[in-house]
Nucleic acid binder design. Structure first.
Lengths: 226, 226
DNA sequence: TTGTCTTTTGTCAGTGGCTGACATTAGCCT
DNA sequence: AGGCTAATGTCAGCCACTGACAAAAGACAA
């Protein structure tokens, strides 16, 4: 409601804005490239800054810290997952909504990733996160934050108070656990593709029930293995 | 099998060893005391060292880093939990064994904690961990490591291969999720006692099933609230 | 075009976690 | 007492990160 009646789709930002965007983009790519080749700990912020030919200080003006650069794409993925869940019709049961939202998201996410960095680079970065203790820790903390938002969303859908009824948080925690195991397994597999992780997600969600009832000796892993 | 036939219970370690133990003990207590009062980020390693009147370098000879000091007691708790699980009779189903092991552990753990630091100090530290992002991240990563060990233990019990059958990891991940929600809820409650967290653990484990089936609107939270 | 305003960037100095190297202290043992 | 070894202190240095200030470099109006 600012410019009156003008079709203000994308009035092409000025040179300044474009330059900023390019710098951020270059920093992000350089960071991921270095993290995934040399390793996260072995990459200094100076290395990244030098690769883009800016000062170290400039890097910190674009990213709060080294870590945040590593998770810039992941940020977007999680954001979009929340949107996927918000888009689920209200009649779906909580776990069903979660399930459909993730799977939906794996179908949609490729485009969004590629608008930031090459898809393959992000997949490699995901692997690096899983295998770097410091990044894994950060990843888990971020996941917990996402789970909290999911819990609040579901509680609202069902008309529950998340502070007096533990079930929403318990569900999203268990769900998050399954996602974590999925991501871990996928990151050590050979099939580093979105289709691969989508299939694994579906398979592991199917296994959650059997895993909990726990009469493991009676039946083998019904469905897919690893 | 070193000293032949000698009743080598506790031949009272020499002065050197005793001094070392005292220094470590003092460092740990000073660290926890400072972390829980001033805050983790607001406490420098120099502060801790100075409080014990040793050099900063000495602190790092006793603890690999600032973080490890914060988790020294937690280390022991997790270790003992694993033992509790190993002690479960083999006929118990996996989830049942986990449940009994945690509850057992909450009954036993008080003694072990008090042999290191005052119980109340550790409980305060647990709170600090939950509310300090950097510590929460570390806590989660450590939890995931514990879950992996739990999964391997259970898989061995049931004669399963943890690398081809996802169910052990899925179970311990879900279980870990419940523990996390429990710890979080407890850390924000008023009842900061071992009995309190034991009761909450039992209640939340009971809620896991209902939370997953997810027909939340039909029934209120059967059992305890928060 | 020029001059002004504002944003972006670089430079510099400093803090805190952490490490390697080397000298010093202090328990230990004959 | 004197030598051996383990614990400690000191010092120099790396890296992530921050505040402060000065130096470019777009944006915009006259």
């Amino acid at each position: 409601m600012e410019t009156v009646g003008a079709a203000e789709a994308a009035p092409r930002p000025g040179l300044r804005e474009r330059k900023k965007q390019r710098t951020r983009d270059a920093l992000l790519r350089a960071a991921l490239e270095l993290f995934t080749t040399r390793g996260y700990e072995q990459t200094t912020v100076d290395d990244i800054a030098e690769a883009v030919d800016v000062s170290q200080r400039t890097f910190f003006r674009y990213f709060p810290g080294k870590e945040e650069a590593a998770f810039a794409v992941q940020d977007m993925v999680e954001e979009q997952f929340l949107e996927s869940l918000r888009a689920r019709p209200p009649h779906e049961a909580p776990l069903e909504a979660l399930r459909r939202a993730v799977l939906d998201n794996w179908d949609r996410i490729g485009e969004a990733i590629m608008s930031l960095v090459p898809l393959e680079l992000h997949l490699r970065m995901f692997r690096a996160i899983e295998s770097t203790p410091a990044l894994l820790a950060a990843h888990l903390r971020r996941s917990v934050e996402t789970e909290e938002q999911l819990a609040r969303l579901l509680a609202a859908r069902e008309g529950l108070d998340v502070d007096t009824d533990p079930r929403p948080r318990l569900l999203t925690a268990a769900f998050g656990g399954v996602m974590r195991v999925t991501g871990r397994q996928w990151s050590t597999s050979e099939d580093l593709s979105l289709e691969g992780i989508r299939a694994l997600t579906a398979a592991y969600l199917d296994q959650m029930g059997p895993a909990l009832t726990g009469n493991w000796r009676a039946t083998g892993p019904s469905g897919s293995g690893g």
